[in-house]
């Protein structure tokens, strides 16, 4: 059986963006393949949005190599943008138009024929569950509705790549789940997604692969599971002690040796293979925590390990 060769839609090598003396993106490498959902994870100011804007061909790279759909973002910007869908971090909806007109007008920016856009607009409104608000102005829509409308708008040109910059920041839990649901359906239809987020649950929900960005560089890359395997342990034991014995307990547990531990102001976390066994060993030293809790490692543990050192060290 023939296996189809994966297409590289975006390829970056040593990609760098500087604004004056400030380096927003510092020589990053990555590939985006057709059909996958690729995430950029990182704290605010890590360089995620700058990277998205470079891929969106609205910010020329300072140096390095960037190929999008086989073209050069500066030379072929117009043609490339014609095949991208962009959901920017801040909604840029047209507040002087209605919901449906937002799609109609945006489609025209791509030079699409009116009839085709009108058909697509109806389908897209259906898809993002805004059909009954089609003739409403944009202003009175809720945050979640606006976000869905931006997503619909970004799909009007049937893009090869959908770029989402923090798609659910600022939304309430219900609205986030609706957005995730829609994005997941797009993914199933084979749309290539590239997104940024600082929500771990979002990354785990949506991303096939991700990179963790920190201080303008890529700190780690892989699937969520790979990242957890590489940068955390299967289980985490969280312990709480009374404030007056907290520090002494932390010292004592450190002496226990084998595992990586992290002590924050209120908790002690042990990264271990077997949480219950570790708890027994802690008790064996005569320490009795106020509370103990064994859980599986998550991306959050990876994230804090890779990017959170400023607060921990």
């Amino acid at each position: 059986m023939l296996r189809r060769v994966p297409e590289v839609l975006v390829r970056a090598r040593g990609l760098t963006k500087r604004f004056g003396a400030f380096t927003a993106v510092d020589g990053i490498d990555f590939d985006l393949f057709r059909g996958e959902a690729f995430g950029f994870l990182g704290p605010n100011g890590a360089g995620k949005s700058s990277t998205m804007r470079m891929i969106g061909c609205v910010s020329p790279p300072t140096s390095g190599e960037l190929t999008i759909l086989g073209g050069d973002p500066v030379r072929d910007g117009v043609a490339i943008r014609g095949r991208l869908g962009v959901v920017p971090q801040e909604d840029t909806l047209d507040i002087e138009l209605t919901v449906r007109e937002n799609l109609l007008v945006y489609g025209r920016y791509f030079g699409l024929p009116r009839k085709l856009i009108a058909e697509r607009a109806d389908q897209l409104l259906e898809f993002v569950q805004l059909t009954d608000r089609a003739d409403s102005k944009v202003d009175p829509l809720s945050g979640g509705m606006k976000r869905r409308l931006v997503i619909a708008r970004s799909l009007v040109n049937d893009p090869d790549i959908l770029i989402l910059d923090e798609p659910t920041t600022g939304l309430d839990p219900q609205a986030r789940h609706v957005v995730w649901d829609r994005l997941y359906r797009l993914k199933q239809r084979g749309v290539t997604l590239i997104l940024t987020t600082h929500y771990m649950d979002e990354a785990e929900q949506l991303c096939d692969r991700l990179v963790v960005m920190d201080r303008a560089r890529i700190a780690a890359a892989g699937t969520p599971r790979e990242l957890i395997e590489a940068y955390s342990s299967p289980e985490v034991l969280e312990l709480r002690f009374a404030p007056e014995v907290h520090e002494a307990a932390a010292e004592k547990i450190k002496d226990l040796g084998t595992e990586r531990i992290e002590a924050t102001a209120d908790r002690i976390m042990l990264y271990v293979d077997d949480g219950d066994e570790a708890l027994e060993r802690v008790r064996g030293t005569g320490l009795e925590p106020l509370a103990s809790f064994v859980r599986r490692s998550t991306l959050e543990d990876v994230f804090l390990r890779l990017t959170g050192r400023r607060l921990i060290d």
Partner: peptide, 14 residues
């Protein structure tokens, strides 16, 4: 193992 897409030059410029 991989191939890069042909250039996008065929797209109509507005």
């Amino acid at each position: 193992y991989q191939r890069v897409l042909p250039p996008v030059g065929d797209l109509r410029r507005l």
